[in-house]
Design a protein around this nucleic acid. Structure first.
Lengths: 328, 328
DNA sequence: AGAATTAACTTAAACGTTTCACATATATTA
DNA sequence: TAATATATGTGAAACGTTTAAGTTAATTCT
């Protein structure tokens, strides 16, 4: 590794001077400045980030704390975040807590110890572990907001509404809900948005059943049983994973989608276009979510007194082939 | 942040002593050792990794350089690697180069600058950029070996063979190959394994066409056209992505899988079980791959003179529903 | 011309560790 | 008992940067 001293010696000047031309802070003549630049380039000098961190307190790295990379919602997000961060000259330290609350709590201590300048966090539940309070750096939440923190997430309520309106418009009257975990606000909002938009004096839609299931393709025995009863024409799943799980289960018991039952998802993960039939679902602006998250985090790192912001991302219905119109 | 000096003051002892009890290196009495431990716990002291790195030259972090997280093969790998690394007290710095060779080359400089102790790298092609030679830390390759480096990867050749034998056993005689990029050794090996196992005097199988396509669900116009010609009973795709792309395309032109055409994949990514029909494919031991990679890397970090190793992971055929037996 | 300002550069301290070299007290040996 | 070894502890240097404070020479002001 070539150091500041190496280039200083090469030019015949002090390390301070070299540092000043590199940071652009001191006062140095055009002439020596050029000589320094030349030496830097010639020697391939790059400042040692560790030493910089030691002195400045900033590591130029951020933590990315996710519940589970194998949930296909996250890789896109992670990729976008990593790229956006890198463009701002930040590295990203990845922690996948596998949805384990203890690991998640410990992750904050770990990231603090590594000296990250900030953290982008997608919580696995609605409550924040104590360890977050001593972390001493900005934290911005993605996808799952918690009050008191900067957050960027999609308009789940609207997504639910969109689905409700669509269900109505396609003439469905008997629907089943595969709602997500109650301890996740986003899941509650989707459900509420749907319910609010399909209930009312002029609406003719009844929610035949409403089950709480995890965000996973593995369905509970209870929901499997419900699927068997053939009492609904539309199943509204809380996310695409649940939706594809439902489609599989339906196929296994000889029900065709959408001919016999329709299914909707939420998220628009890549899977939704490879299953048969292609999933009608709600698209989240994942790219924007990642970009906004690092924007806000970067801003808060350089300006810690910024007020707390929450940015709400618009969603839209993407109509594919998993919902059939029913006749009256 | 509480520092060494803080706990030293609390105990009434020098920083050196505290450091010695923490590292277990010096000679310190049982008594003071206990007092120090108590103070450490009470103050919640954790060594500052940056400072440790400054002194020791080791950051306790490794780089993970991947071509593209949105390729569903990688998230599992990344998750496994992150977890294995964390258990060994290493953090992981993620870089997703989006298959861009320039970004990939630059990533090595970046990681070097960050001072990672080692790098796990999945190259996007068969050649290593120059920047890797000045990186100054161990590098272990996963999935795509390059000679001269430690690597862990699956037995692609055998995978190809398994597929070939299976094709024979299911009575297929007319097959089309959707081979992967020629510049990737793994793709070449799969293809060769297949070809070697289906050609011979006693074998009655002809490869009607053999196209080179990228590892993606997007098929080339040429391959789309081939799919239309209905001259084969089995399509052997170089990976699961290509396979699901083929299935989609086939569906669109009214060909049923596997009734009209059979399809096989490679990798056994999660997608392979959510598409219809579920994909018959070759399983890679991804978990083992990740684990081995960090094992080897960790060993090489503490013992840089270890000879170069390459570990070959066994593969197996997983038979699902995308291949039909044909009559003679 | 003398005083004051400024431009250009250097010296040295500091960040939090680890570890070498040294100091002191206690225990062991001849 | 004197000499030596051992156990326990401390002081200070070093890692590579940034930056406050200081120095020198050149420039500007009255």
């Amino acid at each position: 590794m070539t150091t500041l001293k190496d280039v200083a010696n090469a030019v015949g000047v002090s390390v301070a001077t070299v540092s000043y031309v590199l940071t652009g802070r001191g006062s140095v003549s055009k002439e020596t400045s050029l000589k320094v630049m030349a030496a830097v380039k010639k020697l391939g000098y790059r400042p040692n980030r560790t030493a910089q961190a030691m002195r400045t307190g900033f590591t130029q790295s951020i933590g990315l704390l996710l519940p589970d990379l194998t949930n296909p919602f996250f890789p896109q997000l992670a990729q976008k975040i990593e790229n956006a961060a890198r463009q701002r000259d930040f590295s990203v330290l990845l922690v996948d807590c596998q949805s384990n609350p203890d690991t998640e709590a410990e992750a904050f201590n770990l990231l603090k110890q590594q000296g990250v300048d900030g953290i982008i966090w997608c919580p696995s539940s609605d409550i924040a572990p104590d360890s977050i309070h001593s972390v001493g750096c900005p934290v911005v939440l993605i996808d799952r907001p918690i009050s008191g923190f900067d957050s960027v997430y999609s308009d789940y309520y609207k997504g639910g509404q969109l689905l409700g309106e669509y269900a109505l418009s396609m003439g469905h009257t008997q629907v089943g809900l595969l709602s997500g975990p109650k301890h996740i606000e986003g899941a509650r909002k989707r459900r509420q948005g749907f319910i609010d938009s399909v209930t009312g004096p002029d609406k003719n839609l009844t929610i035949v059943w409403d089950l709480e299931v995890p965000f996973s393709t593995e369905l509970s025995p209870e929901s499997l049983q419900r699927l068997n009863e053939k009492d609904v024409t539309l199943i509204v799943a809380a996310d695409d994973l649940i939706a594809v799980g439902a489609i599989s289960a339906l196929n296994e018991i000889g029900q065709r989608v959408p001919e016999d039952v329709s299914v909707t998802g939420f998220d628009n993960i890549p899977w939704s276009t490879v299953v048969t039939p292609k999933l009608t679902t709600i698209n989240q602006a994942i790219s924007a979510m990642g970009g906004q998250a690092v924007d806000i985090l970067a801003e808060k790192i350089s300006e810690p007194d910024m007020p707390i912001r929450t940015v709400l991302l618009d969603v839209e219905l993407v109509e594919r082939h998993s919902v059939k119109r029913v006749k009256a």
